[in-house]
Structure formats: structure tokens, C-alpha cells
């Protein structure tokens, strides 16, 4: 399903009131709606139900009002989820494909082991975001965070593209995360602004952007800006730092055979 189909104005919207539903009941309603060919769902009164969208493999658009619970879109394979509020831990956990757009903050381990799809968080994320994200050929997950992040950002990363914009940092204020990219052995992290060496994991290197990096940033910061009403050009004017894994095999020399 292409982007244009997502944006199709004519598609039928099904409204579901999540009030009083357990996660099982709510997901059953979603499965029903999606299997009936629904292309757009509005979820009202969501209050912490977990695993929303977990078992969906169609390119349906789900707009969530309220606060979805942990593991939003975990194992998800195709839908686009828009959260009008904050998301909690494990958002996009082991996600395969699709898109999650959060108009607010998100908790810990966002995009844990994600294998594909895109996650856009307008504000901050918690600890260990993008942990063990991985990629294979054309499947390359993307996480863009508008605010800042806590420690172990991009830990164990084995692939994918992670962008941290720090838009809510004040003039002269730095990202505070430490152990960024600890154990990283694949993928790339772009930080808007700079970080001190002590904030980085032992396995990452720092590099200037090249033309290809700029194209990547243009594409995904552009999408971020479009989702949240920012001016991409304005964001991209700022200096970016590229973090990359120094080794494909960070622990290759650990053992005696």
C-alpha cells in the first residue's frame, strides 16, 4: 500500500470507543474492523490498553486519542498508528513494518529490536531507545526523536537509522544521555548538536556528515517535520553529528578458543 492510499480522503473511518475494553477485547475489535477492509480507525478513550495493533498486518491507519499502554504496535506489520498524546514503554517493540507517530513523549525501549518501519516521536524518549534495532537488505527501521533521550540510546544497535533532534533543548544545552551506542555494531545514529566523548559507548565512532548522510536526514527529518508541523529546513540548518559502529564484531576478541 502506498502513501497515497494512506492519505485517501474517501476511506471509511470506523470509530471505536476503547473505554472499558481490555486489551484483548480492543485488539479483537481492531482485527474485526481490519478484516472487514476498514482503512481508517479512530480509537477514542484509550486509557493504557497494551499491545494495540500488535496482530495487524494491513496498511490501516489508526488514530489514537488518549494514552496507549506498553508495547504499542509490537510485532506490527504494516499499519500506521498516530497517537494524539504520549506513548509508553516498548512502543514499536520488534516491529516489522508500518509507522508510529507520537504527538508527545514516549517511554523506555522505543523501537526495541525493530526490524522495519518508522517511528516518529515529537518529544522525548526514555532509556534504551532503539536498543538492538536491526536491518536486513531493504528492511531498515527508522526512529526520529524530536526531543532528547535518556541513557543507553541506540544500545546494541545492529542496524537501522536513528535520529535525535533535541528540538526542546535550550540554547547551549546538551543531550544528557550517557552510554550512547554502547555495543553498537550496525546502523547509524544522527545527533543534532554535539555530545561529549564521555557520553558515548566504547564501540561508536564520530564522523562528519557526507552527502549520503545529508540525503538520509533530509528525507526523514522532512517526514518528521511534515508530521508535526515543523520547518525541516530550519531543523537541518543546525550542525549534526554522525555516530557509527567502530566494529562489526565488537566482542570478537573476548574469547580464548
Amino acid at each position: 500500500m502506498t502513501k497515497s492510499a494512506y492519505r485517501n480522503k474517501d476511506k471509511r473511518t470506523v470509530k471505536i470507543d476503547a473505554y472499558g475494553d481490555t486489551h484483548r477485547e480492543l485488539n479483537a475489535k481492531l482485527r474485526d474492523a481490519v478484516s472487514n477492509g476498514t482503512l481508517r480507525i479512530e480509537l477514542q478513550n484509550v486509557y493504557g490498553q497494551r499491545y494495540i495493533g500488535t496482530d495487524l498486518d494491513k496498511p490501516v491507519e489508526i488514530e489514537i486519542f488518549g494514552v496507549p499502554g506498553n508495547d504499542l504496535g509490537s510485532f506490527m506489520d504494516g499499519p500506521m498508528i498516530i497517537v494524539r498524546g504520549n506513548a509508553q514503554d516498548g512502543c514499536g517493540n520488534t516491529m516489522n513494518n508500518g509507522e508510529i507517530i507520537v504527538h508527545g513523549h514516549a517511554g523506555d525501549i522505543i523501537g526495541h529490536s525493530a526490524r522495519g518501519g518508522k517511528i516518529f516521536i515529537r518529544e522525548d524518549v526514555g532509556y534504551r531507545a532503539a536498543i538492538h534495532m536491526k536491518e536486513y537488505r531493504d528492511k531498515k527501521p527508522v526512529l526520529v526523536v524530536g526531543g532528547t533521550a535518556q541513557d543507553f540510546f541506540g544500545e546494541y544497535m545492529a542496524g537501522g537509522i536513528v535520529i535525535l533532534l533535541g528540538l526542546n533543548l535550550k540554547e547551549g544545552e546538551h543531550h544528557k544521555a550517557r552510554f550512547i551506542g554502547t555495543g553498537m555494531h550496525g546502523g547509524v545514529i544522527y545527533l543534532r548538536g554535539s555530545v561529549e566523548d564521555f557520553q558515548l559507548g566504547k564501540e561508536v565512532g564520530v564522523a562528519e556528515l557526507d552527502e549520503q548522510d545529508r540525503q538520509v536526514l533530509q528525507k526523514y527529518v522532512g517526514e518528521f517535520a511534515a508530521h508535526f508541523g515543523y520547518d525541516a529546513g530550519e531543523i537541518l540548518k543546525h550542525k549534526f553529528t554522525k555516530l557509527f559502529p567502530l566494529y562489526l564484531r565488537p566482542y570478537g576478541r573476548l574469547y580464548a578458543y
Partner: peptide, 10 residues
């Protein structure tokens, strides 16, 4: 495993 060839699978 869906990871690039030659990288450690950690």
C-alpha cells in the same frame, strides 16, 4: 537471522 553477513549476532 535478518542481519548483515559477517556481523556478530549478539
Amino acid at each position: 537471522r535478518m542481519i548483515p553477513q559477517g556481523t556478530d549476532a549478539l
